[in-house]
Simulated scan of single mutants.
Amino acid sequence: MKFADTSRGRPFTKDPAVVSFKGKYWMYYTLGPYVGEQKTSDRGFSIGIAVSDDLEHWETVGEIPEDQTYEQRGICAPGAIVLDNRIHVFYQTYGNGANDAICHAVSDDGTNFTKNSTNPVFRPTGPWNNGRAIDADVIVFKGKLWLYFATRDPQGDIQMQGVASASLDSDFVRSDWIQECDEAILYPELPWEQECIEAAAVCEREGKLYMFYAGAYNNKPQQIGCAVSVDAVQWTRLFQEPFLSNGKPGSWNESESGHPFVFTDENSQTHLFFQGNNDMGRTWYISRVSIGWRDGTPYVDGTGERS
């Protein structure tokens, strides 16, 4: 699979989030600005919507509009989850520097969304960060909805991971979120992670949480690592090297394999969606690999077989 939305003049599709809803698979993704002959407006980053019957072939079906004042500079990097037969999308504002924050919207049909009246619903506090929150991912665990986000150090140089939570019976408004700790839960330490850990993609397996994350800024190259937790807050890396590396010279993802999203289908197969390119970010594509599991450790399963 290699998918890109070309509606704005070039292949440009980043930051995937995939759910199963009403008999189809739905993908929400970052859609790039208009270029070339398609430059009919000055809209920046937006969120596109595509559907599929098989996780391989995708059809674009719409966009989430930037129709609120706080969205005027753009929105992107959605995280998605189905709760009570509704799709909840947690996304970020874009272009506001340290003021970018996480917003929330909900849909009954996958394409038409109602924005949370308290948006943005979350940004971190405390001296350990600069107040920015991007790259949301959410998961239900131990009776709460956990929100993973990327933020930066006070100087705005180092990207790192944080976490907040809200009650499942809440409306996920701003006052419902509790920041779970006053420090990064995952901070770049390994050489390949360079100065950035972002784009948490979390799944549960046998009572543990597994986080696939992007290490290094875009095209440095960004690659994907993996960590594990039993309490949703304290994380241990499973590997010292990337779990999923960028491609070899000449391959479609030579510049990076980054910004993961993990999806478990109805047959309990784990799929890892990610973005890549080979031109240092002029274009972007979404792809997918199957993940197998052996003794509590994930591996890239080229056969697609379930373990």
Rank of each mutant, 00 (worst) to 15 (best):
G126E: 10
D108T: 05
D182S: 08
I158E: 13
Q179M: 11
L145D: 12
Q92P: 03
F113G: 06
N116K: 01
N119Y: 11
D108Q: 04
Y91D: 01
A98Y: 13
P124H: 05
F113I: 09
D137C: 06
A98C: 14
T114W: 00
D109Y: 01
S165N: 08
E183V: 07
Q92K: 15
P124A: 05
V121K: 04
A105M: 09
Y187V: 00
Q159H: 15
S170K: 10
G126H: 06
G143N: 03
Y94W: 15
E183M: 08
D169V: 01
S107P: 10
R152A: 14
E183K: 08
V173P: 02
N99F: 07
A164F: 00
Y187W: 14
Y91N: 03
P154N: 12
W128E: 09
D171F: 00
W128L: 08
W177V: 02
G95T: 13
A184H: 07
F149W: 02
D176W: 07
Y148S: 12
D171S: 14
Y148A: 13
A136W: 00
R174W: 05
I134N: 01
H104N: 04
K115P: 09
T111Y: 04
N119S: 13
Q92G: 15
F172G: 09
G156M: 12
R123P: 01
T151F: 11
W128R: 05
I178N: 10
Y94A: 15
D137A: 04
N112Y: 10
G143R: 05
N130P: 06
D109E: 03
R132A: 08
Y148K: 14
A166Y: 04
L190Q: 13
D137K: 00
T118C: 11
C181H: 05
D137T: 01
S170M: 03
A136K: 03
